[in-house]
């Protein structure tokens, strides 16, 4: 019976991801194209006017920033428990991508906050915990790069990633636990979303597109690292 770990074989991963990648790219292009088209043809919001369109790049960036960290945490757990090199590679590969999406969430949020709230930045629970996510990503990348030995770098950064995962529920529930300037949850709430369907559709498509884009980037980075490790093995064989 084939198990999940069959695909953890680097050779199998290269074959599978190689044939999957073009489809992922197509899916990302299609959903992003449709999302942009819908996003720029919606009417403005009754309160926020045309700035509601910032939501279509802000919420997906924030979603992928957190999803990427979740993915990194799961890969780190597999790395620690199963000691599989591919899990180590997968965790490390997700970090810079997650950091870029986190930065985009912060920047687009700032561009939305200035015209609506009247401030580029406030130190409320949501914004502060999200800034912490960026710092955790950067610290993870620095830690991973600082340790020379591949295996030890993977172990140490996996421990760091798993402990840092506590920030994810803090970000999610910050708007419920504390008073914040950031508004409450619009989508995953009791009684259904409080976003009208004309806004929900482009938001959903853009979020899907951003998710596909993350998997495209992540897959390519994992492939690069597998190739680099093969090169290193070849070099070591020559030297030895």
């Amino acid at each position: 019976m084939p198990s999940l770990f069959e695909f953890a074989n680097p050779k199998k991963f290269m074959d599978l991801s190689g044939s999957l990648l073009p489809w992922l790219v197509a899916a990302a292009a299609l959903t992003l194209g449709a999302g942009l088209l819908l996003g720029f043809t919606t009417p403005p919001d009754y309160q926020q006017g045309d700035t509601v369109r910032i939501m279509f790049v802000h919420v997906p960036a924030a979603w992928v920033a957190m999803m990427a960290y979740g993915v990194m945490t799961v890969a780190s757990i597999f790395g620690l428990v199963n000691r599989h090199p591919l899990a180590d590679i997968a965790a490390r590969a997700a970090a810079p991508i997650g950091a870029v999406f986190t930065a985009l969430g912060l920047i687009t949020g700032s561009l939305w906050g200035r015209p609506m709230w009247g401030a580029w930045w406030v130190w409320d629970g949501r914004l502060t915990s999200f800034l912490l996510l960026l710092l955790i990503y950067l610290a993870y990348i620095a830690l991973n790069d600082a340790i020379e030995n591949e295996t030890r770098a993977a172990r140490a950064s996996a421990v760091f990633a798993i402990v840092g995962a506590v920030n994810l529920p803090i970000i999610e529930f910050s708007v419920q636990w504390w008073t914040t300037l950031h508004q409450g949850e619009s989508i995953l709430r009791k009684g259904g979303p409080t976003i009208a369907p004309v806004f929900l559709w482009p938001l959903f498509l853009m979020a899907l597109g951003y998710t596909f884009l993350f998997f495209v980037f992540w897959t390519i980075r994992i492939r690069s690292e597998i190739l680099n490790r093969r090169s290193r093995t070849l070099l070591e064989m020559r030297a030895g």
């Binding site: 045309d50 700035t51 910032i54 790049v57 561009l111 939305w112």
Partner: peptide, 12 residues
């Protein structure tokens, strides 16, 4: 963008 071009376009 209804007067919000200075925020919407940089975000995109």
């Amino acid at each position: 963008q209804g007067g919000f071009a200075a925020y919407v376009w940089p975000a995109y």
